[in-house]
């Protein structure tokens, strides 16, 4: 099972850990950051929704390879993915996060929270304004978005501090996905059996690698749930600002899930 979890994870990762590590100091230039910040809020939301959807497609492929997942009824496969896909992406983000300068790998380079500033307010283009620094707070159209981005970065930073191996990240992702306490499951007992097997295998791995202290240091599951709720709240707030945009502009899978 341990081999299956690791193999499934590595086969469905867009980037190898070594590659992400090797490139961890390749950051966006200030001009490139400004170009991101000058985008309109809608453009940046569509861009991030696109990247997030790609990551979620990889989570679906990961799930399909996990032992026992495809034996569940399809209703439950959908329930688990709908509830867990974003959480898995957020856990996996620690592999693509440089905790030393608080940047994340996004569209080919590493960038900090400032890269995503346009998500929370309109870009600077066409407004005759200069740098974003010192922008008045009345222009912060989605102020909660900055909190969401900071919270996601904080979460990645706290996971990075645990220095998880690929096997450990793979198990954390598998356990986020195969969670028998998700509401609306039809065959909860079947999911609970798979979850139980995963927990035993994870504990055995941690014992073998003398990393048993990891379990006590993991962030509480409520923190991931809170991030997902924050994302939904911001998406709804964005939708209220751009009522006509959502159906056409976002990837179909993103619309289905959120």
């Amino acid at each position: 099972l341990t081999q299956n979890v690791l193999k499934s994870y590595l086969e469905t990762c867009a980037q190898r850990t070594e590659e992400l590590q090797r490139r961890r100091w390749e950051t966006f230039s200030s001009q490139e950051v400004c170009a991101y910040q000058r985008q309109s809020m809608a453009e940046m939301w569509q861009r991030c929704a696109g990247r997030l959807t790609e990551a979620i497609q990889q989570v679906v492929e990961f799930a399909k390879r996990l032992q026992g997942f495809m034996d569940l009824c399809q209703h439950d496969q959908i329930v688990l993915l709908k509830a867990g896909a974003l959480e898995v992406v957020l856990v996996g983000m620690c592999r693509a996060f440089n905790a030393d300068n608080r940047t994340v790998f996004f569209e080919g380079k590493y960038g900090g929270t400032e890269l995503f500033r346009a998500l929370g307010r309109a870009g600077d283009s066409g407004r005759g304004r200069g740098q974003a620094e010192g922008t008045a707070s009345d222009e912060e159209l989605l102020p909660g978005c900055h909190d969401l981005i900071s919270s996601i970065f904080d979460f990645a930073q706290s996971l990075c501090a645990l220095h998880c191996s690929d096997s450990e990240v793979a198990f954390l992702c598998a356990l986020v996905l195969l969670n028998a306490s998700r509401p609306w499951l039809q065959e909860q007992a079947k999911v609970a059996v798979l979850q139980g097997h995963l927990e035993v295998a994870f504990r055995l791995l941690l014992r073998r690698t003398q990393r048993e202290e990891l379990l006590a240091r993991l962030p509480p599951a409520g923190r991931l749930r809170a991030l997902c709720s924050q994302h939904l709240e911001q998406l709804q707030a964005f939708h209220r600002l751009h009522p006509g945009l959502l159906p056409a502009a976002f990837p179909p899978l993103y619309r289905e899930l959120f």
Partner: peptide
């Protein structure tokens, strides 16, 4: 649920890896 999640349904159907 499958009706409401056609893309997810399709992704899950495509090649049982």
């Amino acid at each position: 649920l499958q009706e409401k999640h056609r893309i997810l349904h399709k992704l899950l159907q495509n090649g049982n890896s």
